[in-house]
Design a protein around this nucleic acid. Sequence first.
DNA 1: TCGGAACGAATTGGCCAATC
DNA 2: GATTGGCCAATTCGTTCCGA
Length: 324
Amino acid sequence: MKGNTSQKILDFIEDKGQATGNDLTGYLSITSRAVRKQLNKLLSEGKLYKVGKPPKVFYLLSKQKSIANKYDIEPSLKKSIDDNFLVITPSGERLEGSQGFIYWCNKQKLGVEKTALEYGRTLKKYIPYKKNGLIDGMYKLKNTFDKIYLDKIFYLDFYSIERFGKTKLGQLLLYAKQSQDKSLIKELASQIRPKVESLIESFDVDAVGFIPPTVKREIQFMQELERNLNLSLPSLKIVKVKTPIIVPQKTLNKLADRIENARDTIMVNDARQYKTLLLLDDALGSGATLNETAKKIKKQKLAENIIGLAITGSFSGFEVISEV
DNA sequence: TCGGAACGAATTGGCCAATC
DNA sequence: GATTGGCCAATTCGTTCCGA
């Protein structure tokens, strides 16, 4: 009997495609505690992965075994792949670093070693835009708007990069929002907290504001993020007013439409006055939402200075600079 | 009508002891 | 030594209730 429980679990899951802890308990006729031990072992060995959260968790066979060492990738390049690459498969398996990179290359029918070199070169291209882990978005905004109401605007990473698609932060943001996964939001919050705290300190920020979401969801990303960041500063009340038909910013192509959307639907409903406000948004497209919100805050004289911070931002607007 | 609080049920993990 | 089981605490979900 000893030793083959884990193999029985693998066989069962292979046969059924997926299984819950309960399914396995019933099938193996051992206690759930024993099943969990085996499942944990198989998870740590990478033979299984799990999707879902309690009380709905399913275990599936891992598609990607440790094949990362099969390829000859220079150590420093492998490290930057490990640090920067993240793929979430259609079935929800999270593949980090080189494991994800190999999966992605195979899917695109690309040679892993050659593509790794190209990836390294592409990453290098974006390095000059980052200072202290922040991208200064002011150039971009200056190329877009006549009048800028934000005193500073930063973001933590680009949403996506050429050829290779979404950055790690971009992936995390997308999946945290779409899957409304609290643990992913928590992970994002812990990643961005150091940057937020250093901004608060260096600019002497005395209040924060979170851009409210457009689309109604069960779990509101920004609200969760605010809760997870747990900043000890007062939070400016910004609300999104309801319109007969909800129009998300990303559905609008024209800048003028985005400005109009932000101007007419985002309201600042607060009376307190602050010196320096940190205004947070999840993703910065044109910057219309942040700029229009900053405009309202300044018109209502609720803050003297406004620092904008988005988790990710688009690269468009930077091309102009990069060609100089 | 909406949002938050409270509650129970299901699941999971940690620790330690018993068993094979 | 590996595996299993008992106990307990923590986490998460779904439902209900209540006040604004």
